[in-house]
Measured scan of single mutants.
Amino acid sequence: APTVVALYDYTANRSDELTIHRGDIIRVFFKDNEDWWYGSIGKGQEGYFPANHVASE
Rank of each mutant, 00 (worst) to 15 (best):
K43H: 13
E17V: 02
V28Q: 01
L18P: 11
N52D: 11
A12N: 01
S40F: 02
S56L: 12
G47L: 01
T11P: 08
A6F: 04
S15T: 11
D35N: 12
I41R: 11
A12C: 00
S15N: 11
N33C: 10
E57L: 13
R14H: 14
D32G: 13
I41H: 05
G47A: 02
Y8H: 14
Y38R: 00
D35E: 12
A55I: 08
F49E: 00
D9N: 07
I25K: 12
Y38N: 02
H21P: 00
V4G: 02
E34V: 11
G44E: 12
I25P: 05
R14K: 15
I25A: 07
H53F: 11
V54D: 02
D35T: 07
G23K: 03
R14E: 10
T11M: 07
A55E: 14
E46G: 07
D24V: 03
V4L: 05
R27A: 10
I20S: 01
S15M: 11
V5A: 03
A12E: 03
T19V: 01
A55W: 09
A55Q: 14
A12V: 05
R22L: 02
N13M: 13
R27S: 12
K43C: 12
Y8M: 10
P2I: 15
R22M: 05
H53V: 15
Y10G: 01
P50K: 04
G47W: 01
T3M: 08
Q45M: 12
V4P: 00
Y10T: 04
W36G: 00
V28C: 04
D9F: 02
G47M: 03
F30W: 09
Y8A: 11
A51I: 05
I26W: 00
R22F: 01
T3I: 07
A1G: 07
A12D: 00
W37R: 01
T11W: 08
Y10W: 09
N13V: 14
V5Q: 10
S40P: 06
I25Q: 09
G42R: 14
Q45P: 08
W37P: 05
G23R: 01
V5C: 06
P2V: 14
D9V: 02
A6C: 12
S15I: 13
L7W: 00
A6Q: 05
G42A: 12
H21G: 05
I41G: 07
G42C: 12
H53T: 14
G44Q: 12
Y8S: 11
I20C: 06
T3A: 07
N33I: 04
I20A: 07
L18G: 01
Y48C: 03
N52A: 12
S40M: 10
I25G: 02
S56A: 14
R27V: 07
E34G: 08
W37L: 07
E57M: 15
A6K: 01
D35M: 10
H53P: 04
H21M: 09
A12I: 03
T3W: 06
N33P: 01
Y10V: 02
G44C: 09
F49R: 00
G44S: 09
N13Q: 14
A51G: 03
N13D: 12
V28F: 04
A12F: 04
S56W: 11
N52G: 11
V5M: 13
T19G: 02
I41V: 14
F49V: 02
I20T: 02
F30L: 12
P50L: 03
N52C: 11
F29W: 14
T3K: 14
D32E: 15
I25R: 12
R14F: 08
T19A: 06
W36Y: 08
H21T: 12
S40R: 11
D32Y: 13
K31Q: 13
T3Q: 11
N33V: 03
Y8P: 01
G47F: 07
V54K: 00
S56N: 14
G44L: 06
P50Y: 00
D16G: 12
V54H: 04
N52P: 03
N13F: 07
Y48P: 01
Y38D: 00
L7G: 04
T11A: 08
V4Q: 04
D32K: 15
T3C: 07
I25Y: 11
V54Y: 02
W36V: 06
I41F: 03
V28R: 01
T19S: 12
Q45T: 08
I26Y: 06
D16P: 05
W37T: 08
N13R: 14
K31W: 07
F29R: 15
T19N: 10
T11Y: 07
E34I: 12
G39N: 03
P50W: 01
R27I: 14
T3D: 07
L7I: 07
Y8G: 06
H53R: 12
R22W: 04
V4S: 04
Y38P: 01
L18F: 05
H21F: 09
I20W: 03
Y10K: 04
N33D: 14
Y8N: 07
V28S: 02
E17Y: 05
N52L: 06
Y48W: 13
S40C: 12
E17L: 05
V28P: 02
D32W: 11
R27E: 15
D24I: 05
E46V: 11
V28I: 08
L18S: 05
H53M: 12
S15A: 15
V4E: 02
W36D: 05
I41N: 15
N33L: 02
A1V: 10
G44W: 06
D35K: 13
I20L: 13
P2F: 15
Q45Y: 09
N33R: 11
E17D: 04
D9M: 01
H53Y: 13
D32H: 10
R27F: 08
N52S: 09
V28D: 03
T19L: 00
L18A: 03
D24W: 01
Y10N: 03
F29S: 14
I41T: 15
I26H: 00
D9S: 08
S56Q: 12
K31I: 08
A55V: 12
T11E: 09
S40L: 05
E57T: 08
D35V: 10
S40W: 08
